[in-house]
């Protein structure tokens, strides 16, 4: 047991955790999780870019059929929700619990708003006969169908993340109201915020790829 002696210099450089919550560790875990989310989407982005390379012309033409207005509005909605998310954390850190609750509620509302707009957009498109395997796409060259397959897959997966994010933020909202997340112990809200911002970042890239190629 020669090693277990206690030189002063070596003391208390680490071994965080059990008595107090390891805030840094929780954030680190969240960041690592965000990396996996990023890589999850990157598989789709890779497919998209390869297909775009194979069917450049078709992708350009197909993108004419997406509704740029819906896309732009949704981008702004999501960016604003990111703002309210960040504001909510600041408010909590400054001890303004109810201001934080207000901001967080608006984030959730904006997230749901995004989903509603997305729903309207999808139904418009499906109504116009644009969906994978539709007779309308069948008349166009091959790349068309791939473009819309990618479109539905990627925006769908992103929408699913928005939905999960809304659920997560709702739990955080309840925690704040119940006093489980406080000014002193706000790391869970911060982690949830990180997740929400990542969803935003993914949309920032989806937007030009599907709405702005014409």
């Amino acid at each position: 047991m020669s090693e277990i002696s206690l030189p002063e210099s070596a003391k208390h450089t680490g071994h965080a955790g059990h008595p107090k919550k390891d805030v840094h560790g929780i954030k680190m875990g969240m960041w690592l999780f965000l990396m996996t989310e990023l890589l999850l989407f990157s598989g789709m982005f890779l497919l998209y870019s390869a297909y775009r390379y194979f069917y450049t012309k078709e992708f350009h033409e197909a993108a004419m059929y997406t509704h740029t207005l819906f896309g732009t509005v949704n981008t702004m909605v999501l960016l604003t929700s990111s703002l309210t998310m960040a504001l909510s954390i600041t408010a909590l850190e400054r001890g303004k619990k109810w201001l934080s609750v207000t901001f967080l509620s608006s984030t959730i509302a904006l997230g749901l708003g995004f989903l509603v707009i997305k729903y309207v957009e999808w139904s418009t498109e499906i109504h116009e006969g644009i969906y994978p395997g539709s007779p309308m796409l069948f008349k166009h060259p091959r790349g068309f169908e791939l473009f819309f397959a990618m479109y539905y897959l990627m925006t769908g997966l992103h929408g699913l993340h928005v939905l999960v994010g809304c659920g997560l933020l709702t739990v955080m909202l309840i925690f704040i109201i119940k006093g489980k997340i406080t000014q002193e112990d706000s790391v869970r809200l911060e982690a949830a915020g990180l997740y929400w911002h990542l969803i935003d970042i993914i949309w920032i890239f989806l937007f030009p790829l599907f709405y702005l190629v014409n």
């Binding site: 998310m85 990180l194 990542l198 970042i201 920032i204 030009p208």
Partner: peptide, 15 residues
């Protein structure tokens, strides 16, 4: 490029 700028703003400041 603009998307890259936007995302780096989000990563650096919001996150």
């Amino acid at each position: 490029l603009i998307a890259l700028v936007k995302s780096s703003l989000v990563v650096n400041v919001f996150m």
